[in-house]
């Protein structure tokens, strides 16, 4: 390598950009220019790490991540918008509400919901589920009925199983008509935990 080449190779020397400052400036401008379609952040909870994502319309996703953050973000990029940025401050409101909920200081969520990830029959099912009050439970059959198809309990179960906004849209409050716990996206342990937290009685 010649002396000239050696000197050229030193040309990129210097401190790397301050990643935090850079990202903060980027998402601030993105938001100001209406380019922040999906903002996300993660948070700790008694149920493990959660990822929350919001759009300008509202909360679009809550995920039990368990190492699958990348898959959750790719899904958001494909189904909502690829303009996905890590932007904790945009998710502060919903993260505060979730923390209050886990601390027993909140019984309902005020944050608006963006239903874009929900299609068809599932819209009615999940919206009916969202109306089930804190500490109460209902059945797959009842939410299917509220969505207009009382005989579609199984389809309602599938819709609840793919609920993109667990906890806030309380699919944990939906049980089998016979009293069985049914299923849960995050595993039955989490369903039991949430029902206990809400004082919904010794179930399952």
């Amino acid at each position: 390598m010649s002396e000239l080449e050696r000197r050229l190779a030193r040309g990129g020397d210097g401190p790397a950009p301050d990643a935090d400052r850079l990202s903060a400036a980027l998402r601030q401008r993105a938001a100001a220019e209406g380019l922040l379609d999906v903002a996300y952040a993660s948070m700790d909870s008694p149920l493990g790490e959660l990822l929350v994502a919001v759009t300008p319309r509202g909360l679009v996703r809550v995920a039990y991540v368990q190492e699958a953050t990348e898959a959750v973000l790719e899904d958001l990029a494909n189904r909502v918008s690829p303009r996905v940025l890590r932007a904790p401050e945009r998710t502060d409101e919903v993260r505060d509400e979730l923390e209050e909920y886990f601390a027993g200081a909140r019984r309902g969520f005020d944050t608006p919901i963006d239903w874009s990830l929900v299609r068809g029959f599932a819209v009615g099912v999940l919206q009916a589920t969202a109306r089930v009050p804190f500490g109460q439970v209902t059945t797959y059959r009842d939410v299917a009925g509220a969505a207009g198809s009382p005989r579609a309990a199984r389809a309602a179960g599938n819709a609840l199983g793919s609920n993109p906004i667990p906890i806030v849209v309380p699919c944990h409050r939906v049980l089998h008509a016979g009293g069985g716990l049914g299923g849960y996206t995050g595993g039955l342990e989490r369903k039991r935990f949430l029902l206990r937290l809400e004082g919904a009685g010794p179930i399952g």
Binding site: G11, G12, A16, L73, P82, L85
Partner: peptide, 24 residues
């Protein structure tokens, strides 16, 4: 059509892009 989340591009390329621009 599948595009990765934009944040993944930033995470993967921003530091090197910065070095490129320091030189350029």
């Amino acid at each position: 059509m599948r595009l990765p989340p934009f944040q993944a591009l930033v995470d993967a390329h921003a530091v090197e892009l910065h070095r490129f621009l320091v030189g350029y």
